[in-house]
Nucleic acid binder design. Structure first.
Ligand SMILES: [Mn+2]
Ligand SMILES: [Mn+2]
Ligand SMILES: [Zn+2]
Ligand SMILES: [Zn+2]
Lengths: 138, 138
DNA sequence: TCACTAAATGCGAAAGATTCTCATTCTTCT
DNA sequence: AGAAGAATGAGAATCTTTCGCATTTAGTGA
């Protein structure tokens, strides 16, 4: 019963929230815009408004259930929180997204924040390029 | 005569372009949104439309004269190209922006792209935190 | 210097993403 | 089951950026 999970976070276990959460947990695609989540739920026969999708994703973000990314291209992209921090490398041709962790980069970032006198709260690293399969095509 | 600079880039030396370019070159603030550039020019008595500011900044970006960043908060931020690649660390309280270069991070990024099979085209690294002066206030 | 042509500009309309408003519908608690 | 407050859905509103088009301007050659 995952409705308890939501309650622990101070969120009422409403149908839209449960549907969105379980959709994110089971989707094969990890990184999705609010619009994509909305459309996927529509096609699955769920009747949840776009505004609700935005609201719920924002609440989930505040609760630490999902994280939000600002990839190039304007709109926010969400993914269910895996617990492990990671950064992203994206294909500018096909939109493919891969994840990576690099402890050297992480510690360098902490060092830079320190040197500049900042108390670091967050960071975002996006590498853009052409993935191997798109390289073959061109 | 900087109008020659624009012509070399294949851009007609129009009044709006010259005004925007010299404003960017002389502004004490390095990182500005299109709206901010537009308003600053208005206050300086220049009569340039917002659409033109957007168009010109986009053209300057294509010509390599300015670079565009997507800091958190939705809108694009522009800065005049300094020639030296650098990344950014931003204060989430006051909006202050500092720049840095870290060759270790740069080479690690190239390595990651390589390992993942990507032909890297670009990358963006943003560190967010609270700057020293904002830390004192709270 | 003058005139021509293509390119650039300004304005308002339009588009895309996200948030807001508010009447209606649920959840939770008793 | 009933009450009170929170959440939802639909569309309006907002914000940023781009478009469309009539008008102006820069660049070129006579
Ligand atoms: Mn991810
Ligand atoms: Mn910069
Ligand atoms: Zn690709
Ligand atoms: Zn600050």
């Amino acid at each position: 019963m995952e409705s308890e999970d939501l309650k622990k976070l101070g969120l009422k276990a409403t149908a839209p929230r449960m549907k969105i959460l379980s959709f994110l947990e089971t989707s094969k695609v990890r990184h999705m815009s609010a619009e994509e989540v909305y459309k996927a739920l529509l096609e699955a026969g769920e009747d949840i408004g776009l505004a609700t999708v935005y609201r719920v994703l924002t609440q989930f973000e505040a609760a630490g259930l999902v994280s939000r990314h600002h990839f190039e291209g304007g709109n926010s992209v969400f993914e269910i929180e895996s617990g492990k921090h990671h950064d992203h490398i994206l294909c500018v041709k096909c939109g493919r997204v891969d994840e990576f962790v690099d402890e050297t980069i992480e510690s360098r970032q902490r060092k830079i924040a320190d040197e500049k006198g900042y108390a670091m709260t967050d960071h975002a690293l996006y590498i853009y390029g052409i993935c191997s399969s798109c390289q073959k095509k061109s």
